[in-house]
Amino acid sequence: MKQIIPFALLALLSACDAHAQSTSSSSSSSSGGSGTSSAVTTRDGETTIVTSDGRRCRVVHGSGGGTSSSVTTHADGSLSSSTTAGGSGVRVESGNGASKADCFVHDDGTITERKK
C-alpha cells in the first residue's frame, strides 16, 4: 500500500496536468473546437461591426464630439471595452469566468473605483 500511494498520486497529478493543458488549448479554435467573437461600436451615425471567427485581436473604435468608445477582442478570448466622455471614463474587462471594472471620474484620470 505504501508503495502504491506515491504512484497513484503521481498518476493523478499527471492526469490533472494533462487536463489543464487540454483546457488551455481548447481556447484556441485551431484545436478542433469552435470559437467566435463579435464587437460593435457606434458614434454620430457611423457604425462599425467587427465579427471574428478566429482568435485574432480586433479593435473597433469610435470617437469625436466629446465621447469615445472602444471594444478590444484579445487573443485568449477575453474582451475589454472602454468609454470616455469629457474627463471621465469607464473600462470593463471580462473573460475566462472573471470580470473587473475601473471607473475614472476625474480629469486627471485618477481611478476612484475598482470592482472585481
Binding site: S26, G35, T36, S37, V40, T41, V60, T67, L79, S81
Partner: peptide, 23 residues
C-alpha cells in the same frame, strides 16, 4: 454626443459557440 461599444466572445473545445452583437 453619445457613444457606445458592446461585444461578446464564446469558445468551446467540442460543441457549438455563437455570439451576436448589435448597437
Amino acid at each position: 454626443s453619445q457613444s457606445g461599444a458592446i461585444g461578446g466572445s464564446a469558445a468551446t473545445a467540442d460543441g457549438k459557440a455563437s455570439t451576436k452583437s448589435h448597437l
